[in-house]
Design a protein around this nucleic acid. Structure first.
Length: 464
RNA sequence: GGCGCAUUCGUCUAGGGGUCCAGGACGCCGCCCUCUCACGGCGGUAACACGGGUUCGAAUCCCGUAUGCGCUACCA
């Protein structure tokens, strides 16, 4: 049987990095085995789920480059892929469970249950359901929930692909609700029904679901369904070692996209958070990750999200890409330059100093903006003279030739020559190497009226 | 409280009884390259949570403690 995995987001906001990593692991696993990757929207919590959120999450997944074979927007053989649209099948399964005598109608009110829980806490007892409706079973249509009965016998063991064997004693678990009194089924029940119905072979999900798994296994057993393989991925933490949240700064995939991170870098970084390449690589392609991914190299310990390493990695991607490849990524961050013909050259000149796409604007500001700096007048005059006589440098050779002439005419060399030259040309005391910057200014000035040419710049100095 | 999971440099990790006085990466520090800022290269700093076992030998296996996290809902 071929591998079928699913990512099951709750549509309650943007995709967060934790969810993104879970999605990535599922995707890599599916691709590695040439299996199917399925998106299932878990929107049984009507109060929190919205359609807009679903769109956002799907958009975030697309941005990451994770394509799916079946899902709410593309349908598939097990449609629908939205839990809110699958109520019939849950109802049927719940009825089957009741018919088998393992689930029952519970007429207790929420208030009643809440009071019992509080009392149990005071008495130091586990807050389990007191079995009232199990002992006194009814089947009338008064408002009721459906509860799954857990006898206090034996235990439940799973062989988690990341954590190994995990065992729970059934007595540590009380009878639990599978269908709410409003008729909506509950997560722990839906997952089982859906994963079975959708022929999911491997359930790869966040660690917070680990302890819920024993409930789910009980339902599989009661329905006599094959239990899938489980793999529980650890949580991603913030720098203070608590679960990553808003106060740690950006946590959603879209926020990182807006901060100038590349989808490939994000995928690479998140993959590295918990998984390690068998070759010890930190930077690798999607293809490499697909080829080499395996659950047994996934770490069971939680991982702290490190913005510095992520930024470094993003820089690695930017540096490795050609300027032409970068242009479409940079454009959205650089509206004033979106149509300038010199953008590609500009990117090429400054990209090694950039770690995020948003930094290109600042790195290229010297092209568009110029305020005449204080520069030695004699040098400025020699420079102006040379530019008038020979034209501005347009490539490495003409730049070097100009530098040689200036060395002679000014008698300066090294830093004493280059720093004033840099200042005169860019208005700044730092920036890309002049051999690239000066030709860029010349080229840009030829095609963009807003850009001052090298000569125009020196003349401004002389005029001031 | 109960149950469960986790614990190697500041961070991500390699390691699955001897090859580890623990390797790589980010960060940090220094040197080199260099007109500057970067990039790149080289080097350095820094860790097996603690305590018991098992074993000739333990980062690796077992038990306990501590700490962190998760679940314990008619949330997912």
């Amino acid at each position: 049987m071929s591998v079928r995995v699913r990512f099951a987001p709750s549509p309650t906001g943007h995709l967060h990095v934790g969810g993104a990593r879970t999605a990535i692991f599922n995707w890599l696993f599916a691709k590695h085995f040439n299996g199917a990757f399925i998106i299932r929207v878990e929107d049984t919590d009507q109060a929190r789920s919205t359609h807009e959120s679903e769109q956002m999450v799907l958009d975030d997944l697309r941005w990451l480059g994770l394509g799916w074979d079946e899902g709410p927007d593309v349908s598939g053989p097990h449609a629908p892929y939205r839990q809110s649209e699958r109520r019939t099948i849950y109802g049927e399964t719940a009825a089957a469970l009741v018919a088998k005598g393992v689930a029952y109608r519970c007429y207790c009110s929420e208030e009643e249950l809440e009071a019992k829980r509080k009392q149990a806490e005071v008495d130091g007892r586990p807050p389990h359901y007191d079995l009232k409706c199990w002992i006194d079973r009814r089947d009338d249509d008064a408002p009721h929930a459906i509860r799954f009965h857990v006898p206090d016998d034996g235990d439940v063991t799973i062989d988690d692909l990341i954590r190994g064997e995990v065992t729970w004693r059934k007595e540590s678990l009380g009878d639990f609700i599978i269908v709410r009194s409003d008729g909506f089924p509950v997560y722990n029940f839906c997952v089982v029904v859906d994963d079975h119905d959708m022929d999911i072979t491997h359930v790869i999900r966040a660690e917070e679901h680990l302890t819920n798994t024993h409930r789910q296994v009980l339902i599989y057993r009661a329905m006599e369904w094959a239990v899938p393989h489980f793999a529980h991925v650890s949580l991603i933490l913030g720098q203070d070692r608590t679960k990553l949240s808003k106060r740690h700064g950006a946590t959603s995939v879209s926020a990182y996209a807006e901060e100038g991170y590349l989808p490939d870098a994000m995928l690479n970084y998140l993959t590295l958070l918990g998984w390690s390449s068998p070759d010890g690589l930190d930077v690798f392609s999607r293809e490499y990750a697909i080829q080499n991914f395996s659950l047994d190299r996934v770490n069971a310990a939680p991982a702290v999200f490190d913005p510095q390493k992520f930024e470094w990695l993003n820089g690695q991607y930017i540096h490795a890409m050609s300027a032409a490849e970068l242009v479409p990524f940079v454009r959205p961050f650089f509206p004033s330059l979106s149509n300038t013909p010199w953008l590609e050259e500009g990117i090429d000149v400054v990209k090694t100093s950039v770690h995020r796409l948003t930094e290109f604007a600042g790195a290229l500001l010297f092209v568009l903006e110029y305020a005449p700096p204080a520069v030695d007048r004699a040098l400025a005059e020699k420079l102006a003279e040379d530019l008038r006589a020979n034209g501005a440098p347009t490539d490495e050779a003409s730049y070097k030739a100009m530098v040689e002439r200036l060395k002679i005419s000014t008698g300066l060399k090294g830093k004493a020559l280059f720093m004033p030259l840099r200042l005169a040309m860019t208005g700044l005391d730092h920036g890309p190497e002049l051999v690239r910057a000066i030709p860029l200014l010349q080229h840009a000035s030829e095609v963009d009226a807003r850009v001052l040419s090298p000569l125009a710049r020196v003349e401004m100095i002389l005029a001031s």
